[in-house]
């Protein structure tokens, strides 16, 4: 396995210490626990998946919709697509769904893996690998995708 790249293009650098949304707008501080929350069932309510966006935590789907080892895509109101993943240890990850090498919105359909402890998704088109923790491409130091903070939260049914 290749080692982690050392350089990130300006403007794409994830916030130190954790995943952060990309773009000009700064992430709104929130109570999220970020990448790494277990997605187990909690008593007395439905477990939902939430993404931290510019305007705060937004619920995107039920936790039950995720399959360990695979991803799903969500469409945000502004047209952005985010790929959500659940790994076999129960950790949640979210990165942009667009494969920057081909332009196709397919990263959610890639296979998960881990290399040197870093979880990644391999693009189903040309197989480049992207770290799920911060979106950097493991096969090309010049490329990365946005990463999002994600959590599972108990939400009372509407």
């Amino acid at each position: 396995m290749t080692t982690a790249p050392t350089r990130q293009p300006a403007g794409q650098r994830p916030a130190p210490g954790g995943a952060a949304p990309t773009g000009a707008a700064a992430p709104a501080p929130g109570p999220g626990t970020g990448s790494g929350d277990p997605a187990g069932t909690v008593h007395g309510g439905t477990l939902r998946i939430q993404l931290l966006l510019e305007d705060g935590w937004r619920t995107v789907c039920d936790a039950a919709r995720l399959t360990a080892g695979r991803g799903v895509a969500v469409l945000l109101p502004d047209g952005r697509q985010v790929a959500l993943f659940l790994d076999r240890t129960g950790r949640l990850h979210a990165i942009d769904n667009r494969d920057p090498f081909t332009g196709a919105s397919v990263l959610s359909r890639g296979l998960l893996g881990s290399a040197d402890g870093t979880p990644f998704v391999a693009s189903p088109l040309l197989k480049q690998r992207f770290a799920l923790t911060d979106g950097r491409c493991l096969d090309d130091d010049e490329v990365s995708v946005a990463a999002y903070r994600i959590r599972a939260a108990e939400v009372r049914a509407a």
């Binding site: 790994d87 076999r88 890639g110 296979l111 998960l112 402890g117 391999a122």
Partner: peptide, 13 residues
């Protein structure tokens, strides 16, 4: 080092 991990895009399929 790989036990308990996710596997990868090579070995899974």
């Amino acid at each position: 080092g790989a036990r308990g991990g996710e596997g990868c895009e090579v070995c899974k399929p």
